[in-house]
Nucleic acid binder design. Structure first.
Lengths: 257, 257
DNA sequence: GCTTGACCTTGACGCAGGGTCAAGGTTCGA
DNA sequence: TCGAACCTTGACCCTGCGTCAAGGTCAAGC
């Protein structure tokens, strides 16, 4: 007759595992000797090895019990089921590998490659880091909600950078990011912004409007700007004085009656 | 400003997960409003999405914190490390798949294919199921301790079945398995066994002895027989009367002084 | 002003599969 | 007769949250 330690070593498991299987009902509790020690026969070794074999094959303990008592049909069905689970887990890990390989390739936590490329271009063009950081945070939010639209959005942004007038406007905004709320240059900046908006062809904006950003996301993006940039609240007020509201989605105010 | 539920839904996680990340120190606790609710800004959404991105890439939360604060070199090293872990987990599951595919192919829980083939042959030859079950349990124990010797052992067993004399002896043992301990045919069976043993060429046994089964395993295998077969203790006593001891490894008793 | 339902708060337990003490009793060999 | 190496039960630890429980808060509709 075997003690728990001997049993465990025959089957190549720890005594803790054996007691765990007792607690789970996988292995029946054996007789105790006069001092309370568990005493096992050879059948227990064979049973334990079967349990180990299934557990090491990736079968959850909860199912090991069923499987030991299953007939051939049930066994085959259960095995098919487990195999499917294993395949799913393998695929999952393969996706994880691909994902972290992407992460390793750049600073693009949570951003698709085209957005990384856009931010890199801003960096090469000499935009201030604070502005780039704001853009990145904002696009992270958009990418999370509308990942399928990101290639289009980034293509539109690249077009904007290609346009010298927009580029110049953006550079001024970049400089203005550090201005204090009472900076005297702010009204002039607001004038320039409004002028650009009014000069803008409707066509340009249609491209954006077709893939309407949801209202709550717009509000969130506005708050990125408002939180990050000290002069932002003042600038928005100046724009409202000039008949425009919002930031992420700038719109004409309904004219006052 | 966002509530925890809004934050969570922007990032595509549960509120429970957000609180979990707070508890783990991955995401800083935000300000509370007058009623004690957590209030988040848009930065928190971006931070949370980064956490999610890493966590979904299979990075353990304990490492996510380090990674968010890591420089590029550390990040690359950590990513390489995680990739290695993922590959190991994939390999593990592929081994599991192969293992359960084997299991599905037969009743061979914990037995190598050659042992399954041997047991199947016993079944085809009409040996009683009780004897086959005993053989299976015994070989499970051997396979667990000496897996590398199983092909040889099974080859030797097949040779025994090929021999008409041994086959006949085994069939008698198979019949005897159900006998009561005081069955009058037992002495005759013991005589026949001893006769076979003494007629056996030394060469036959050398093959087995070369790959000595350890003493404790022999004791365990004997106990399978003693536990499973009611008449076993009596049969062993009868063999000892005739100058032989043991069962798994039958040996001549040292002659009495 | 009241109810209802959807939020929010902290705290605690649960899961798989055991690892790792703790505090004590038992057995075995020298 | 002593110490080492067993054994016993009980309880806490890990991951990554899910899921109660027992309440507080908020907005809407009556």
């Amino acid at each position: 007759m075997l003690t728990i330690g001997e049993l465990a070593s025959y089957a190549g498991v720890t005594t803790r595992a054996v007691r765990h299987y007792h607690a789970k009902g996988l292995l029946p509790e054996p007789e105790r000797d006069h001092s309370g020690y568990r005493r096992y026969d050879a059948r227990a070794v064979a049973d334990l090895i079967k349990i180990r074999t299934l557990a090491e094959a990736g079968v959850p303990l909860a199912r090991v019990g069923e499987l030991l008592a299953a007939d051939e049909t049930e066994f085959a069905a259960a095995v098919a089921d487990i195999d499917q689970r294993l395949r799913a887990e393998i695929r999952e890990r393969q996706r994880h590998r691909a994902r972290i390989a992407q992460l390793a390739a750049g600073d693009n936590l949570a951003l698709p490659p085209e957005a990384v490329a856009y931010l890199d271009r801003m960096r090469r063009l000499g935009y201030p880091e604070l502005m780039i950081a704001g853009e990145r945070d904002a696009w992270i939010l958009v990418a999370a909600q509308m990942p399928e639209h990101m290639p289009l959005f980034m293509a539109l942004k690249e077009v904007q950078l290609d346009d010298p007038a927009t580029d110049e406007l953006y550079r001024e905004l970049g400089d203005a990011i550090g201005w204090s709320p009472d900076d005297p240059r702010l009204p002039g900046l607001a004038d320039k912004l409004v002028a650009t908006l009014e000069a803008e062809e409707e066509v340009d904006r249609e491209a954006w409007e077709e893939f309407a950003i949801p209202d709550d996301l717009v509000a969130l993006l506005d708050s990125v700007f408002l939180d990050l940039v000290p002069m932002a609240p003042r600038l928005l007020r100046l724009l409202e004085d000039r008949g425009w509201t919002g930031w992420t989605r700038l719109e004409r105010l309904p004219s006052l009656r």
